[in-house]
């Protein structure tokens, strides 16, 4: 006989909400990059507006998590789940902000786009999007293995970013590229690198949910 159906239900709803929040942030990332690549100023503004919804999600989820705490006095895995979620939604919100920032970059460049500048950024975007997707999956299944994979993948992202900087520096020296455009491309790439870091943070809180340790420090 299972007891505490209300609690079980509340926890499931909480997880779903977090998944939907992350989903929204993810779609904002994709649309933001698309807008930047194709100079779609309208789409860019849409994405920036949608970030408000991501923020609202954070507040809603925080409220629900707190309610579970005062109502149900959760212990053990329930406790780790709720407190972990309270921490990682901050990172998802930051991811949303960065997606909005990426979209905003669109507004700073005019029509011309130097297509040669984007392959690395696009690769970074692809990997980072996968990281965010994996971390959502890791959350929903409370899976430590997936979380660890996400953390490892971040090395790749950092590598790619360093590659991009090298490449940009070279091309700027050789005057092969428009400095203005170069700056904005670098900034977009930086935002993706940050998104990667936030995905790692989320993964670390997922590991906490499973083991009670955050970055190898027991919190209990």
């Amino acid at each position: 006989m299972t007891l505490r159906n209300k609690l079980i239900e509340s926890l499931e709803i909480l997880k779903k909400d977090v998944a939907m929040m992350a989903d929204l942030a993810l779609s904002n990332i994709r649309e933001g990059l698309y807008a930047f690549k194709n100079n779609d100023q309208n789409l860019a503004r849409e994405v920036m507006a949608k970030d408000v919804e991501v923020d609202r999600y954070e507040e809603e989820i925080a409220k629900k998590a707190l309610q579970i705490i005062w109502r149900e006095q959760p212990l053990a895995s329930d406790l780790r789940l709720v407190t972990g979620i309270l921490k990682l939604i901050t990172d998802i919100e930051r991811i949303g902000d960065h997606a909005s920032d990426i979209a905003e970059m669109t507004l700073h460049l005019d029509d011309q786009r130097n297509k040669r500048l984007l392959p690395i950024t696009s690769k970074m975007a692809e990997i980072v999007e996968q990281m965010v997707l994996s971390s959502i999956q890791g959350l929903v299944n409370v899976d430590q293995v997936i979380a660890n994979q996400v953390i490892e993948t971040d090395d790749l992202v950092d590598d790619l970013f360093n590659q991009l900087i090298l490449k940009m520096t070279l091309e700027l020296k050789e005057d092969k590229v428009d400095p203005n455009e170069a700056i904005y491309v670098l900034m977009v790439a930086k935002y993706f690198e940050r998104i990667g870091d936030h995905a790692v943070n989320i993964a670390e809180w997922i590991i906490f949910m499973v083991s009670g340790k955050h970055k190898n420090t027991p919190l209990f």
Binding site: T2, L3, A76, D78, L79, F220
Partner: peptide, 21 residues
């Protein structure tokens, strides 16, 4: 500090989280 946060055994976990009486 460990038993109520990260219990070792599932039976303990289930009892503490009230999954069974």
């Amino acid at each position: 500090s460990t038993l109520f946060s990260t219990p070792q055994f599932k039976k303990t976990e289930d009892y503490i989280t009230g999954r069974f009486g």
